[in-house]
Design a protein around this nucleic acid. Structure first.
Lengths: 227, 227, 227, 227
DNA sequence: GATGAATGAGAGTTCATTCAT
DNA sequence: GATGAATGAACTCTCATTCAT
C-alpha cells in the first residue's frame, strides 16, 4: 500500500512556535541538530517519509525533547526553509555591496551569475524544498526573502535611474527577482542542464537588460528623452 | 503491513492508474464526478483535508465505487491537474491562431493579457494546485503544458525572426513562457491584486518586448536600420 | 497499496515478528496481556471475530501500543499457540520423569490418562486453536511439540526394547503420539463426552499396547517363550 | 500489508444454502463450475485469496449468477469439501464390498493401503482443505464421512467378532478410522514422504492389527477362550 | 530537563452482497 | 435469468502528540 499520512490537522499558524527561546548553548545545538536531521530526511527520503519520530531518531534525541523545542511538525519544515533563506539573504546583501559601483551591464551579468550559482549550490536541499514541501507552509518565508532581494535590487536600480528610465524601480525589481527565481527554480526541477549553460545565462542577461532598457531612449540619442 | 512509504520523492509513473477504462457512459460520468469532487475539496479545504472517503462522499458515491476506478488518491489529484492543463492547452492553441498575423507589439500585449486572464480565471483551483501539488507528481503535467506553449510561441517568434534577431527562438520561447508562468503564479499566490493591475501588465509587456528586442539593432540606428 | 495477499498458503517465517524485544518489565506485561486477550477472544468469539482493534480493546490498551510490539495479527495467534505448546511440553517432560521406572502397562495407562486430561484441560482454547488455526502458521508449532513428545516416548520405548521387540522406536513413537493426538483432538471437536469415558480410555490403552506388542512373540508360546 | 478480510460475519448456518435446487442441466453445470473454480483458487492461491468475485471470474460467470445459486461464500467452501467427501464415501463402499470375504490380516492390509492411496491422490486439494479451510465450516462434513466409514468398518469387524473378541465394534471402528485419518492427514501436511514408505504402511498395519487382537486369545491356544 | 511508551483519530483499502438494468 | 456496477461496514496500520516516569 500506498498508505500515507500527511499532517493531520490543517495547520493553525501559531505565534509561539518555539516553546522556549533556546538561549542556552545546549538548546540551540539541539534545535540545530533537529533542523539538520529534518533536512537530511527530506533530501534522502522525501516529505512523505518525514515524521517527528524519525526526525528525533535521526537527530539522536527523544521525541519528547523534540517537542520541548518544536511545537509542531510543520515548524521543523519551516525552519529548514528559514535556514536556507538566511543564507540566501546574506548572499544578497554581499552582492549588493559588491555591485555598489558597477555598471548596469556588469551588474546584471553578475546578478544572473549569482542567481545561477545559488541554484547550483545545495541542489539536493533546494530541490527537496521545491519539490517536497507543501508550498503553503514555506511560501511566506520565500516571499520575505524575495522582498528583501527586491528591495536591494530596487535601490540599485534607483541609483541608475537616469540611465535606465525605469518608472517604478520597486515594481521592476520585484519583476526581475520573481523572474529570475521562477526561471532558476524551473530549471532546477526540470532542466538542470540549463543551470550550467552559458547560453542560458546569456539569455537571462538579455531578458533582464532588455527589460531594464525597454523604455530607455536608444543609446546615443540625446541626453534624455527622444528629443 | 505491510505499511509502505511512497516511492521516495520520484514519482514512479504507473501504467495502470485507472482500474478500468471507463468506457461506458455511466463510468465516465462517475470518474468525472470524482475529479470534480476532488477539485472542490482541494479548493475549499486544501490537500491535507483530501481523503478518499471524503472525495467519495463529496461525489455522492461510495468509497467502493471510487476504488473501482481509481487506484490511488494522488491519481485523482493528477486528474484534476490534467483536466486543467487540457483547458489551458486549448486556450494556447486558440491564441496561437488568433496571433497568426499580429505584429510583435500587439502579439505580446495579447499574450500578456491572456496569461493574466488565465491566472484570474479559476483562481482558487489554480492556487490550490500551485500551493500543494508539486510533490504529488503534477510537475510533469505542468511541464508538458509549458513545452506545448513554448513550441507554439517559438513558432510565432520564428515567423518574426527578421524583425527580432532572436538567435534561438526555442530557448527564448521557453524563457518567456517560464517567466510569465513564474510571474503570474507568484502574483496569484502572493500578490493577487497585481493580476488586475494595468501597471503590472505594462511591466510584463516591457519585460517580454525588451527581451525579444534586446539583441535587435536599435530601430533607425546602424547599418540595418529601417531608414 | 497496495493491498496484499498473504504469502499464498505457506507461512513465511518472519524473523522480526516482535518489533522490540520486550525486555522491560512493563513491555513484557503488555505483550502478555495482548496474548491473553487474543486467547480470550479466540475462545469466546472465534478467529473471524479477531481483529487488532478488538484485541487492543480487550487488553485495555490502544491499537498503537499493540503495533508497537506486534507487527501482525497472526503473530498474536501464533503466540497463543506457543504459550500453550510450552505448557504442554513441560507436562511431557514431567511425565517422562514420572515414567522412568514404570512397566509398559502402567506407563501406557498413564500416558493415555495424561493425554485425555490435557485434552480436557483448557478445552475451549484448545478447541479454538484446532478449529481455526492451521492456516495461520500454527502447524509448525504443534509439529515441534509433537516431535518433542515423540522423542521422549521413543526413549522410553527403547528402554523397554527387549520386552517389546519394536524395530524402530522412533517411528513407533511418532505413530503413537500422532495417533493419540488425532484421537483426542477428534474427540475434543466432535465427541467431547468420550474424553470422560473410561471405556474410551481403555480403548486407547488397548490400541497403544496392542501396537507395541503386535510384533512381540506371544507370551508363553514359541521358541522364546518365557516358560 | 498484510491486510486481509475474512468472512465478515460469523456464519449463521442456513437451512437453505442453495437458492434453487439446480434441477436444470444448465444450473447443475454452473454450480459445478463454481465449485471447481473454488477448488482451483484454494489450491493455487489459498483461502485468503478466495473471494466471491474471484470465484465468479475464475468460473467465467458473473457474481450475480454466483449468488443466484450460492447464498454464501462459506457454502462454496463447504461444497468443495462435500464433493471430495462424496468421492471418498464411494471409495469406502467399494472397499467394503471388496473385503466381504477377506481375512482380518488381508483386510487390514488392504484398508491401510487404501487409506494411504487416498491421501496420495488429489494431494493438492486434500492439503488445501486441511491447511486452508477454517475447520469450523467443514468439520461436520468430514465427521459425517468418518461416521460412514466407521459404520462400514464396524460391520466388517462384527462379522469377524469370534476371531477378534472386540467388545464394542462400533467404538473400535471409530477409533481405527479416526486413527488412520489422523495419521494420514498428519503425514500429508508434515511428513509427505511417509505416504510412500512401506515401513510406514507396515507400521499402520501393526497398529490396527495389534489393536484388533489386543484382547483376543493368543492364537493357537484352545479353540476359544483361554480355558 | 529528558525520555519514550502510550494514545487514538483517522487514513487507505477490500470484498461479501445487493439490485437496477 | 444474467449481469456487474455499486455499496459501505469493517479492517489493518500510522504517526503527531502527550505525559508519567
Amino acid at each position: 500500500m500506498t498508505r500515507v499520512h500527511r499532517s493531520r490537522r490543517v495547520r493553525v499558524p501559531q505565534a509561539q512556535e518555539l516553546r522556549k527561546r533556546p538561549s542556552q548553548e545546549r538548546s540551540r545545538a539541539l534545535v540545530e541538530s533537529l533542523v539538520e536531521a529534518t533536512a537530511r530526511i527530506l533530501i534522502r527520503d522525501g516529505y512523505d517519509a518525514l515524521s517527528t519520530n524519525r526526525v528525533a531518531v535521526e537527530a539522536g534525541v527523544s521525541v519528547g525533547s523534540l517537542y520541548q523545542y518544536v511545537t509542531n511538525k510543520d515548524t521543523l519544515v519551516r525552519m529548514v526553509a528559514e535556514r536556507w533563506a538566511e543564507g540566501a539573504a546574506a548572499e544578497f546583501v554581499r552582492l549588493r555591496a559588491e555591485l555598489a559601483g558597477a555598471t548596469v551591464d556588469a551588474g546584471v551579468r553578475r546578478i544572473v551569475d549569482v542567481a545561477l550559482a545559488m541554484a547550483r549550490a545545495d541542489v539536493r536541499l533546494h530541490r527537496a524544498m521545491l519539490e517536497q514541501l507543501p508550498r503553503i507552509g514555506v511560501l511566506p518565508i520565500f516571499d520575505a526573502l524575495g522582498r528583501r532581494a527586491a528591495d536591494l535590487l530596487a535601490e540599485w536600480i534607483a541609483e541608475r535611474r537616469d540611465e535606465l528610465a525605469v518608472p517604478d524601480p520597486s515594481l521592476t525589481a520585484h519583476v526581475i527577482v520573481t523572474t529570475l527565481d521562477g526561471l532558476t527554480d524551473h530549471a532546477l526541477l526540470l532542466r538542470p542542464e540549463l543551470l550550467d549553460s552559458p547560453r542560458f545565462a546569456r539569455e537571462l542577461e538579455a531578458l533582464v537588460l532588455g527589460y531594464l532598457r525597454a523604455r530607455a531612449p536608444a543609446p546615443g540619442v540625446g541626453p534624455r528623452g527622444r528629443g
